[in-house]
Design a protein around this nucleic acid. Structure first.
Length: 738
DNA sequence: AACGCGAATGACCTAAGCGT
DNA sequence: ACGCTTAGGTCATTCGCGTT
């Protein structure tokens, strides 16, 4: 069908293609021969094609359209010869991609993936099925995908169903080593062109393609359930999932063939053609890993309460008392309430406000985690639609926007159904705050997504099993409200263990979600952060870098140290630095590149880069999820703090009090103890230089990347504030203003 | 030479699902 | 009330071609 297609010629649409066909030209060859023998395009298109014996030999060479057609036809024939189908997938609209199908039906790679959900950011790939040259291949989390990369790369084309928006972007985002398909045909749009609505299953029904009995009723949501069930121990569910994935893949060539036959007869208005032949699945190209192997991998990587405990104990010295509340809008409806101390859980179903408050107070919790919006969108002072603030403010908070953008479904805080809940949540928080109790906002749905525990909507008994697998003791009959209350408490555990993100905005408040990536398959490092510390000498950068690397298990990178170790092997560099010069930019760049790649997936705190505004671009380019933590300190305070410090004998760097013995700027290890006058002068000039550099940095850095912490406070407080700031996710509006 | 016509195109908008 | 990708709509513009 490809050789009969003219839609990709310049100036040819549906109508003109029909005219070409009606004029008796049925393929490229005929048109090409006619054009190259001197018949211009307008005569090709003429209704009554008269073959003049006196064709003007040169009429084609003056006609730009004829020349363009000849060029395009030449290119098309070359593309077919080279099996470069990308040429056609790019020049034909997706609804016409079916015209390629007969050419690549038997050569293409058919691909389908299963995931734990729809969010690229928080869900992960579980099973991948591929069909190529009559062989079926399958991979299960977390096997190596080298062979898949190879297959995609060697296949002339990849065929998927809705893979344009789902499978391919998901794969590319999660697996750096997987290449983009050479050419990609997404059957969805051809199915649409055939007038069939619905997904793959609907299209299969239309063409009367049948699936095996035991998986006929399964859909994508069931695949998620089957996956979790498989992880929790069911070999049967695991096998079902593999089978489901295989059916999705194996039916695709049948669907493609039927679709091709259907659309071709409709388009050419010709007699029925036989359905193109399909290569039968003859053998297994790759056997996925076994269920027991999967279980073993899972046990090693799964999220587990016990993994959080050491961190928490370090802070508390015991199991903290956590209360989780799954709040409902109306006192008539059951509010789930859970008291969790370590793995033990006690739950209740409560109703009115007094009851909730008194039980919570009686538990004397260290922290309370509430499943309800605990703040209003900016500009709002009341939840009601009738309130005048509705005009100026919206009903959505940044927290919800961020979750949406990450693919996690959440209701806006102030849609009608949520207004009562939001109000109740805010009131309850206020009352608890009056008793000095810390409250965080949690969202069990998001937590369950991130921790790979099925949402209650999906399967309630599985939610319970998920929580049990996580390490909680849950006894007796539990309602789903109580289970969500436990999930809320679980979020607080992540909060206390400093494994969380705060999502929202300063003027709207933050929602807490757990940070967990242990289950992801591939090289995805979305939540890895790189944070540069910026501030005057004496603001506490070095101390903070050390504390953060200890407390959050981040790696710390001090540019000066790295330069020093390089200078040891490089006398030129050594001398350059000794004269107090900046290291050359390309060296800095290569040092940083090495640091980024060697720290793998851990977050990094960077001291000493960027030093001035001209390095901002490099920083943004090198560091994924880059942010600046600004330790804000007035210069007179800085002066006071560093007066007691020594300066580097070589470059004049001011040493932090006793924390390092080599200069982080130049790497020298001798320190001046000069006269006070001289030292004060050096200090003053260093401070002037630093503060102008800091100002320049902050002015030129993108707003949402800068977090400022007041450093004129006791060290402990600064560290605390810094940790909070780093757990925070700000919403950077996708504005196009440059 | 001026004009109309059909067709294609590009820029813009809206609407519709779809993936697990 | 998100967002991704597409189809399908309008509108203005352009081109080739034939008519007036």
């Amino acid at each position: 069908m490809l050789e009969r297609t003219f839609l990709h010629l310049p100036g040819v649409g549906k109508k003109t293609e029909q005219r070409i066909w009606r004029a008796g030209f049925s393929d490229w060859e005929q048109v090409w021969r006619s054009l190259s023998s001197g018949v211009p395009v307008r005569e090709v298109l003429a209704k009554n094609r008269q073959r003049s014996l006196f064709e003007q030999r040169d009429s084609v060479s003056d006609d730009p359209r004829s020349i363009a057609w000849l060029d395009c036809l030449d290119e098309s024939r070359n593309a077919v010869r080279r099996r470069d189908y990308q040429f056609f997938t790019e020049s034909l609209s997706p609804s016409n991609h079916w015209r390629l199908l007969d050419a690549l039906l038997s050569d293409a790679l058919y691909l389908d993936i299963e995931t734990t959900g729809l969010s690229h950011d928080h869900h992960y790939v579980t099973v991948i099925g591929a069909l190529c040259q009559g062989k079926f291949y399958q991979w299960v989390w977390p096997e190596s995908l080298d062979e898949l990369a190879e297959l995609i790369d060697s296949a002339p084309a990849t065929i998927t169903f809705n893979g344009k928006r789902f499978d391919i972007p998901f794969l590319l985002k999660h697996f750096k080593a997987i290449p983009a398909p050479k050419a990609h045909v997404d059957l969805l749009y051809s199915v649409r062109a055939a007038g069939i609505s619905g997904g793959q299953k609907a299209a299969e029904r239309f063409f009367e393609l049948r699936r095996a009995e035991e998986i006929r009723e399964l859909d994508g949501q069931d695949a998620v359930i089957a996956w979790c069930d498989g992880l929790y121990g069911s070999a049967r569910s695991f096998r079902q999932l593999l089978k489901y994935n295989r059916a999705d893949v194996e039916l695709m060539p049948h669907l493609a063939a039927s679709l091709y036959k259907y659309l071709r007869t409709r388009t050419l208005e010709e007699n029925e053609i036989p359905r193109p032949r399909i290569t039968r699945v003859r053998s297994l190209g790759r056997k996925p890993s076994s269920h027991s192997r999967l279980r073993q991998e899972w046990r090693e990587r799964r999220p587990f309460l016990g993994a959080l405990s050491p961190r928490i104990h370090e802070q508390f010295g015991r199991d903290p008392v956590v209360v989780g509340i799954d709040l409902r809008a109306k006192p008539d409806n059951p509010t789930g309430w859970a008291l969790c101390i370590g793995p033990s859980t006690t739950t209740r179903v409560l109703f009115d406000d007094d009851e909730i408050l008194s039980h919570t107070l009686a538990a004397q919790p260290d922290i309370v985690s509430i499943d309800a919006p605990l703040s209003l969108p900016r500009g709002r002072v009341s939840v009601s639609d009738n309130s005048p603030c509705r005009k100026s403010g919206g009903i959505v908070r940044d927290a919800e926007r961020i979750l949406w953008s990450r693919g996690i479904r959440v209701y806006p805080a102030l849609i009608r159904q949520m207004q009562g809940l939001t109000k109740r949540g805010i009131d309850l928080t206020k009352q608890l705050a009056e008793h000095g109790i810390d409250v965080i906002e949690s969202y069990p749905g998001a937590a369950q997504d991130i921790l790979n525990i099925p949402r209650k909507k999906l399967d309630e008994s599985l939610l319970r099993r998920g929580l049990t697998q996580f390490g909680y003791n849950i006894r007796g009959e539990k309602s789903h409200d109580e289970l969500d209350a436990i999930t809320s408490a679980l979020v607080a555990q992540f909060y206390l263990a400093e494994e969380y993100e705060e999502i929202g905005a300063d003027d709207e408040g933050y929602m807490v979600i757990p940070r967990f990536r242990g289950m992801s398959w591939g090289t995805l490092s979305l939540h890895r952060q790189i944070v540069s510390l910026v501030g005057l000498p004496g603001a506490g950068k070095t101390t903070l870098a050390q504390t953060l690397s200890r407390r959050l298990a981040w790696s710390s990178f001090i540019l000066g140290n790295e330069l020093r170790s390089r200078a040891e092997a490089d006398p030129d560099l050594d001398e350059l630095l000794a004269r107090g010069n900046m290291a050359p930019e390309d060296l800095v760049e290569s040092v940083l590149r090495d640091a980024v790649s060697s720290s793998q997936d851990t977050s990094v705190v960077v001291d000493g880069f960027p030093r001035h505004k001209d390095q901002l671009r490099l920083a943004a380019e090198l560091f994924p999820n880059w942010r600046i933590l600004h330790l804000d300190l007035p210069s007179r305070l800085a002066e006071k703090r560093i007066r007691g410090r020594a300066t580097c004998a070589r470059c004049g760097h001011l040493r932090s009090s006793g924390t390092i013995d080599v200069c982080p700027t130049c790497g020298a290890s001798t320190w001046n103890t000069r006269s006070e006058d001289e030292r004060d002068q050096i200090i003053a000039s260093r401070l002037r230089e630093s503060s102008s550099q800091v100002r320049g940095l902050l002015r030129n850095a993108p707003r949402h990347t800068v977090y400022t912490v007041n450093a004129a406070q006791p060290e402990e407080k600064v560290v605390d504030l810094a940790v909070r700031a780093l757990m925070r996710t700000r919403y950077a509006k996708r504005s196009t203003d440059a």
